[in-house]
Design a protein around this nucleic acid. Structure first.
Lengths: 185, 185
DNA sequence: CTACAGCGTTCGGTTTGACGAACACTCGCG
DNA sequence: CGCGAGTGTTCGTCAAACCGAACGCTGTAG
C-alpha cells in the first residue's frame, strides 16, 4: 500500500505550481483545457474533486504528464564549450560521445526541449531547493544562467547551474532551441 | 505529447486487469474501496468518468500505485516528433517548452552529447537491466532504437527506448549529433 | 425442488462536479 | 476621472457521478 498522500491538496498545489511554471493565467489555462474557469478556480483552491477527464485535459493543456499532477512534490555555473571536453570514440564507428553530467542517485531529472525567440527575456522563478538545470544548445545562441552570472552559449555548448535561484533565458538569434534537463532532489 | 490514450478505456481495462490479478470479486473490491458496486461495474464497463477520490480509493484497495490505473500499457519505444506535442508558452517571452520525460524518483540520469557520422552502425550492447535511453536529435538524421524496432528521427525529435536490450545508432547524414540521456535504475 | 449465497448488471433517487454569467478587483490608457 | 481588458472569485442551474435496492444468473447444499 503505497498511497501516502491526500490527493486533493496535492492536486491543488500541483495545478498552481505547474501553471506558474508555464507562466499562463488561470483564464488562459481554462480556455486551453476547455474548462470553465470557475471549475479551475475551485480546483486550485483545494475545494473540489475533479473527474479523470477534467484532470487529464489539464495535464494535456499544461504539457505535463498526468502523473505529475497527482504525485506529491517529491551553484556553481559550469560551462562545457563544444569540443572542449575529451571525446570518446566508440570502437569501429564514427561516433563521438561526451559525458557532460553524471547523475546522482536519488534525484529525478526531467527532459525538456525549449524554443526561444529573441527580443524577450524569460525570467524564471526559483524552483524547489536543490534543483539543478542542465542545458545543451542545439541551435542558435542564448544567454542564460543565474541573473547575476549570465553566460553566452552556442550550438553544442553545455551549461549547468542551480535552479533554486532566480535565473533567466534569452535568445540572441532567431530559431534558438535547447535541450533542458531539470534535476530535482 | 505523451498523453496519447483516451483515458477512460485505459482505466476500465486497468481496473479489470488489476482486479483479476488480485483475484477478488467486483463486489469484494467495491466493499474494500467503500464504493457502491454499481459504480465499479460502470467503471469497468468503460461507461463512466470517475472522480479522483473514487479512483484513488480503488488504487488503495487494489494495493497498486495510482499511476498504474491511469497509464496506458506503454510500448517501450516512444517517439515525440518535433512540434507534435503541445508547447507551453512562458509568460511574456518567446519561449516554448515541451516536457519530454518526467523523471522517476530513485533513478539516476547521465547526460551525453553524441556525434555520429554516416556509414557505420554503432551496435550497443545491452546495459544493466532497467536502463532507459532518451534522445533528442540536435542536427542531422539518425536511425536508432532496439534492433528489431528502429525508428528514424530528425532535429527536434525525441525518442526513448529500453537500454537493456540490443540497440543501435546509425547516422544518415554527415554531422549528425544528439543529446543522449542515459537513465539507470 | 426449494433455499441460500455469491456473482455482476440494471434501475430510480440523491449528491455534487462542471458550466456560464455576474461579480469585485487591478492595471494601463485617454 | 471613466473606460476597457485583463485577472480570479462567487453565484444559480443542469447534467452526471455515486449510491442503494432490486434484478437475473450460477452453483451448492439441504
Amino acid at each position: 500500500m503505497q498511497q501516502p498522500a491526500p490527493p486533493l491538496a496535492v492536486i491543488a498545489a500541483a495545478l498552481r505550481r505547474e501553471r506558474d511554471r508555464a507562466g499562463i493565467s488561470l483564464t488562459e489555462l481554462a480556455r486551453r483545457a476547455g474548462l470553465a474557469k470557475s471549475t479551475l478556480s475551485q480546483l486550485e483552491s483545494g475545494s473540489g474533486n475533479p473527474s479523470i477527464e477534467t484532470l487529464w485535459a489539464l495535464g494535456v493543456a499544461l504539457g505535463v504528464p498526468f502523473s505529475r499532477l497527482v504525485e506529491p512534490p517529491s551553484s556553481p555555473v559550469r560551462v562545457v564549450r563544444a569540443g572542449s571536453s575529451p571525446r570518446v570514440r566508440a570502437e569501429g564507428a564514427d561516433v563521438y560521445g561526451t559525458l557532460l553530467s553524471a547523475g546522482v542517485p536519488g534525484t529525478r531529472r526531467d527532459v525538456y526541449v525549449l524554443e526561444l525567440e529573441p527580443g524577450a527575456r524569460r525570467d524564471a522563478d526559483p524552483h524547489i531547493p536543490g534543483s539543478v538545470e542542465h542545458m545543451v544548445v542545439a541551435g542558435g545562441r542564448i544567454r542564460t544562467g543565474p541573473v547575476d552570472e549570465l553566460v553566452e552559449v552556442g550550438p553544442g555548448d553545455y551549461v549547468t547551474f542551480p535552479g533554486d535561484v532566480p535565473h533567466s533565458y534569452e535568445a540572441l538569434e532567431p530559431g534558438s532551441w535547447v535541450i533542458l534537463v531539470m534535476e530535482h532532489r
